[in-house]
């Protein structure tokens, strides 16, 4: 009983993590399914056919690649812009700082349907042809705020004396950024970019407004849902998830190894 009480919190924590992963496990399991009808919702029999032929359904791989392209470009641009904003907000005092802060917060406080609807209203009024570019513009817009918040947190956690020390040691403002601020904030920027990529790659609601007839991976899934989502979609989603998970976990292990090895040598 005492053991249970002392471990209760840990057990609850692990259960919550399990809860987070249950639907993902379902997706992974269903990627090995050979569905009975067109709807891949319940287990029938084991099959590797989807994994053996990932692009086997018309349009699925095109949409997948398009989503990756958009996510990469949107993340790159949003990360650069977002990091610049975070630097300005944390390291400088200027008029309009409060307004800039609100402008960053507002897109996060706006439901995605409203973001999508308003962008579509603009696109329609300007008679912009919907497609790749209108999706990209939208993704950069809603990713920037998340990047700013993540990088800001990292910058605020940084000792301002390190930058003063760099200045004191003959580093010009640019060199201070290049040799001290940037390397120290880089892990935060990479984390933010990873999150930005995930948000962009997985976005459906806003993309659905901004896409016209262009089909991203989530739009493909939505469209396919009516007539049954192909098993290939489950396999591709499982693949992305597995790659991301293995990548980040390996990264964690390597960095903690390195830390432990350094600690042991001292």
């Amino acid at each position: 009983m005492a053991w249970l009480r002392s471990k209760l919190l840990g057990i609850v924590a692990v259960l919550v993590l399990v809860y987070l992963f249950v639907p993902i496990a379902v997706v992974a399991v269903l990627s090995f399914n050979n569905p009975e009808g067109k709807f891949n919702v319940s287990w029938n029999e084991f099959s590797l056919s989807a994994w053996g032929n990932l692009c086997g359904v018309a349009g699925v791989c095109q949409s997948f690649i398009l989503s990756i392209e958009i996510a990469l470009i949107a993340t790159l641009i949003a990360t650069v812009f977002g990091t610049m904003i975070a630097l300005a907000l944390v390291r400088y005092r200027f008029r309009g700082r409060g307004a800039a802060n609100s402008l960053i917060f507002l897109p996060m406080a706006t439901p995605e349907v409203v973001l999508g609807a308003s962008l579509l209203a603009l696109y329609l009024n300007l008679r912009l042809p919907l497609g790749f570019w209108t999706i990209l513009i939208a993704h950069i817009m809603f990713t920037i705020s998340f990047i700013v918040v993540a990088v800001k947190a990292r910058l605020q956690g940084m000792d301002p004396r390190l930058e003063e020390a760099a200045q004191d040691l003959y580093a010009s403002p640019w060199q201070t950024f290049r040799f001290v601020t940037f390397p120290l904030v880089l892990p935060g920027i990479l984390g933010a970019a990873l999150l930005g990529f995930a948000l962009s790659f997985d976005d459906f609601i806003i993309s659905n407004f901004a896409s016209g007839t262009t089909v991203t991976f989530p739009i493909f899934i939505w469209g396919a849902a009516q007539r049954g989502i192909p098993v290939q979609v489950y396999a591709l989603a499982t693949l992305v998830f597995a790659l991301a998970l293995v990548g980040t976990v390996l990264g964690q292990i390597v960095s903690s190894r390195r830390r432990r090895k350094l600690a042991a040598s001292s």
């Binding site: 992963f21 993902i24 849902a225 998970l245």
Partner: peptide
């Protein structure tokens, strides 16, 4: 660090498919 990675991990599994998976779980 590992647990934090696991918390963020669901972001990398399609939002639509995860919601769809609840159809299976709650069927």
């Amino acid at each position: 660090a590992l647990m934090l990675v696991l918390v963020v991990a669901p972001f990398f599994a399609s939002f639509l498919l995860r919601t769809y998976a609840w159809k299976t779980i709650l069927a």
